[in-house]
C-alpha cells in the first residue's frame, strides 16, 4: 500500500461529502440520480480502502511519494504554475496580448532558453494565435478591464 493513496481516498470522500451536502438544497426528484452516483463513488472508494488495507497486510506500507515525484523539479514546477495563474489574472486585467508576451518572456527566461529562441517563440506564438483565432475564427481576444 502507498501512503499517497490515503490522500486519494480522502479527496474522493471529500468530493462525496461536498456534493452530498450540495445536493440537499436541490428539488427532491432532481436529487435521486446525483445521490446514486455519490453512493457509487463512495462504495468504489471504500472498496479501494479495503484493497489498500489488504495490500498493507500483505506487502507492508510504502511512502509512494518518491515513486510519484521522482525527478520532480519543485522550484521549476511551482514557478511555472504560479506564472500560469498570474497569466490568467493578467488576461482578465490587462488583456491577452500583454499578458502573453509577459508569460512567454518570463517563463522562457526562467527556463534559460537562448534570447534569439525566445524572440522567435514569442513572435511565432502570437502570430499563430492572431492568424488562427483572430483572422480565421473571428475571435476577439480579451482586452482586459484596464483597457476597456
Amino acid at each position: 500500500m502507498k501512503k499517497t493513496d490515503i490522500g486519494v481516498v480522502a479527496f474522493m470522500y471529500a468530493v462525496c461529502a461536498f456534493f452530498f451536502i450540495a445536493s440537499r438544497s436541490m428539488k427532491k426528484e432532481a436529487q435521486i440520480y446525483p445521490v446514486c452516483i455519490i453512493i457509487l463513488l463512495f462504495l468504489l472508494t471504500t472498496g479501494y480502502v479495503v484493497k489498500m488495507l489488504l495490500d498493507a497486510k500483505r506487502q507492508g506500507v510504502t511512502s509512494g511519494l518518491g515513486e510519484i515525484f521522482a525527478g520532480f523539479q519543485a522550484k521549476q514546477f511551482f514557478v511555472i504554475l504560479g506564472l500560469l495563474i498570474v497569466y490568467l489574472a493578467g488576461i482578465y486585467f490587462v488583456g491577452f496580448y500583454l499578458s502573453t508576451v509577459v508569460l512567454m518572456l518570463a517563463s522562457l527566461l526562467f527556463l534559460r532558453v537562448p534570447l534569439w529562441q525566445i524572440l522567435i517563440s514569442v513572435v511565432v506564438v502570437l502570430g499563430l494565435v492572431y492568424g488562427a483565432f483572430v483572422l480565421f475564427l473571428n475571435v476577439s481576444l480579451p482586452v482586459g478591464l484596464l483597457f476597456k
Binding site: 497569466y87 488576461i91 508569460l103 512567454m104 534559460r112 532558453v113 529562441q117 517563440s121 506564438v125 494565435v129
Partner: peptide
C-alpha cells in the same frame, strides 16, 4: 520542452 511549456499553455487558454 522549455519552449513547448508556455506555447502550449497559451494555446490552451486561447
Amino acid at each position: 520542452d522549455a519552449i513547448l511549456i508556455p506555447s502550449v499553455a497559451v494555446l490552451c487558454v486561447v
